[in-house]
Design a protein around this nucleic acid. Structure first.
Length: 689
DNA sequence: TTAGGGTTAG
């Protein structure tokens, strides 16, 4: 829209604010008006100057910092309104420190604060989490007689809440003689900001009891809490309320419903609501994509991303982080790389969160080099970034490098947390570093004041067990100061499988079963222990128990990404449209590696089957089908990347080593525990997994 | 003044 030339205005209106507000959209517009005001000397009218200041400080986006400052400095006697504007300006422009300095200046110059000053300055304090300054302002509010001013007290609540002082905020709240909806909402938002979800629900129930009217903002806060607490009933009640009161036009509210349903495990309901939205903005898309991710429906998350790409919706950093999360879980490197290039093309800032998510993607896809490159480029890093790197290196078999990064992290004064120690101990476990592991375990409490939790004990059991110290691991469990859980015993059971320890293996499985309904995999581990020491009858007996007791089997599934599409394979399945071709390719592949000396290892196969059937069954394990598919669908020399939901079996491990040599391919297999980088007939795990 | 989507392990 063209701006009416100021010279065309014969007489400046009595209230120039409307004119400036309505017509000034850019700095250029403002400059013209500014020039006109100087020329006509209207600038010396304090009301006029203040309106100009308001436009410059608050209303025009992306204005250079010095513009409003220079207008302010030229004011002869700035009053409280002018100061308020500048305080808001600094807070808005992420310079809350300046806002506080200006407030001090205001008091030095004896300008009396008005009722608008306190909410403004409290907002600046909230941004800085400046509790002490806030408390001083609290007493000023009392001194100047604004103690019952709703706006000031609401802002005060917000300040306490943003500093994590929810009890103090609640104290102020409880002491208020009158509360508006905004007051209640400030309290709700304080609780959500501090993750006090139970308190949110409790306060809302109180609100209903007292028959205080709530509004849409209230519901958004309560829905957030419902999602975190899986309070589906209250969530559904709110949903009905929204439907009954025609509030579905509020995108924030509907997005909150989508988020609540996803977090409560009702993704399909969430999707229905999402589809019904008349306009879906970028937050709605983000919520739905991350909803699929949180429900572990990553394939659908990425399918939705492809739909979003066809709209005009511009994904933001938050969207990218959710997409990367799903890519990382699936091992979908191609889509992940698309995200990376998009981030670069749009010159998005490589924030800690985004950078960490990218690193996680690369590490979970076995691209260690790319991950380290991102890490080096990140301008700032936090415990998360370091922990992700250490854990990722550990999973990729680079335990020593992981430990090196742990030391540099400590040197840089980044304090490790309990998760970091899980990662470090994991590194020791994968690299077979027993003494180092013991050392780190001891240093947790001694040097960092972190009490080991069940997970850390689990890592120690893994370290000892994998290294073959089965007896010691068993004793370690018996001497634990906390009750061992099923995970601990399952870990030891897996070590017993590797080191063929029947006795402790039997005891471990008993304990797993006692503590938790065991998975079929647990029984198969024991069965394989028997088979490995030649006790075939026992092996068959355990396998039969799985059937007799109706223990649920988790089917093995391997995933490969091809041109952004995720292909899933199950053992002996034929759901893939190109099934026949893939089976032929698998036969071919197996024939070729047999010629090169591969011998099938059928100890992991169904024991009741004939030898030929066994061989055919293991040759149709999901990862073999996926690798064969990769071989025929990619050009020679391309790295093949497979993601598997279970651990790789002995035979697939042997076969894949041979395939990497015979077909001259790098094959990266990510199983549920770690990575296997196959190249030239050997694996990065050194057959230790 | 108050409101919606995100990262690490086992």
């Amino acid at each position: 829209m063209a701006l009416t030339a100021p010279s065309a205005i014969p007489q400046f209106p009595d209230n120039p604010k409307t004119l400036i507000l309505k017509q000034c959209k850019t700095i250029k517009d403002l400059n013209q008006i500014h020039a006109h005001l100087i020329k006509t000397r209207l600038i010396h009218n304090p009301r006029v100057a203040e309106n100009l200041l308001e436009s410059a400080a608050i209303l025009i986006p992306d204005i250079p910092m010095d513009y409003p400052i220079s207008i302010f400095e030229k004011l002869e006697e700035p009053d409280s309104a002018a100061y308020n504007l500048m305080i808001r300006f600094f807070t808005l422009k992420q310079s809350p420190n300046e806002a506080i300095l200006l407030f001090n200046e205001m008091r030095e110059r004896s300008v009396r604060p008005d009722e608008f000053t306190f909410p403004c300055i409290l907002k600046a304090c909230s941004k800085l989490h400046a509790l002490k300054e806030g408390e001083q302002i609290h007493s000023l509010i009392m001194k100047y007689g604004f103690g019952s001013d709703g706006f000031a007290v609401n802002a005060l609540l917000g300040l306490f809440a943003s500093c994590g002082k929810v009890e103090v905020a609640r104290h102020v709240f409880d002491g208020m003689p009158e509360r508006s909806v905004v007051t209640w909402n400030s309290m709700f938002s304080g609780y959500t900001g501090s993750g006090c979800w139970e308190e949110v629900v409790g306060l809302f129930r109180k609100m209903l009891e007292m028959e205080v009217g709530f509004d849409e903002v209230t519901l958004v806060c309560v829905l957030k809490a419902c999602g975190r607490l899986a309070e589906i009933e209250l969530g559904e009640w709110i949903h009905e309320y929204v439907e009954a009161n025609g509030l579905k036009g509020n995108p924030a509210l509907v997005t909150s419903l989508v988020d609540m349903y996803s977090k409560c495990g009702r993704v399909d309901t969430a999707r229905r609501l999402f589809d019904e939205m008349p306009r879906r903005d970028f937050v709605a898309w983000s919520a739905m994509i991350s909803g699929y991710g949180q429900a572990s429906r990553h394939r659908e998350a990425l399918e939705l991303v492809h739909v979003m790409q066809k709209t005009n919706i511009e994904p933001t950093e938050v969207t990218m982080v959710s997409i990367l999360f799903s890519c990382a879980v699936l091992g979908a490197l191609e889509t992940g790389k698309w995200v990376h290039s998009y981030v670069m093309k749009k010159r998005m800032k490589l924030t800690v969160t985004l950078g960490t998510a990218l690193m996680d993607l690369y590490l979970k896809c076995g691209s260690v080099g790319n991950a380290i490159e991102v890490f080096r480029k990140m301008p700032s890093k936090n415990v998360f970034s370091w922990t992700v790197l250490i854990q990722g290196l550990a999973n990729n078999g680079q335990g020593k490098k992981a430990i090196g990064f742990f030391h540099s992290m400590v040197e840089k004064n980044i304090t490790p947390n309990n998760v970091t120690f899980v990662a470090v101990l994991c590194a020791c476990s994968h690299a077979g570093l027993v003494d180092e592991g013991r050392g780190f375990f001891a240093s947790m409490d001694r040097d960092f004041g972190i009490e080991p939790m069940i997970e850390h004990y689990g890592c120690m059991v893994d370290i000892l067990g994998r290294a073959g110290c089965i007896e010691e691991a068993y004793q370690f469990i018996n001497n634990m100061p906390i009750q061992p859980n099923a995970v601990i015993w399952r870990t030891l059971l897996a070590s017993c499988r590797v080191h063929k320890n029947v006795e402790i293996g039997e005891r471990s499985l008993k304990n797993v079963v006692r503590l938790e309904s065991a998975h079929s995999g647990d029984h198969i581990l024991l069965s394989n222990i028997y088979a490995s020491v030649g006790r075939l009858e026992d092996a068959v007996r355990v396998r039969n128990q799985i059937k007799e007791k109706g223990i649920k089997k988790m089917p093995g599934c391997s995933v490969i990404e091809m041109d952004g599409i995720i292909h899933e394979f199950f053992c002996e399945d034929n759901i893939h449209p190109d099934s026949e071709e893939i089976y032929n390719a698998t036969e071919n592949m197996m024939k070729k590696i047999k010629l090169a000396g591969y011998l099938p290892d059928t100890t992991g196969a169904r024991l009741d089957a004939e030898e030929d059937d066994k061989e055919s069954s293991i040759s149709h394990h999901s990862e073999k089908l996926a690798i064969a598919f990769g071989l025929i669908r990619t050009s020679p020399g391309t790295t093949i990347r497979i993601t598997k939901n279970l651990r790789v079996c002995m035979d697939c491990h042997n076969a894949t080593k041979m395939i990497s040599k015979v077909f001259d391919r790098e094959i990266v297999v990510r199983d549920r525990n770690r990575f296997h980088h196959f190249k030239d007939g050997s694996c990065s795990c050194n057959d230790y997994w």
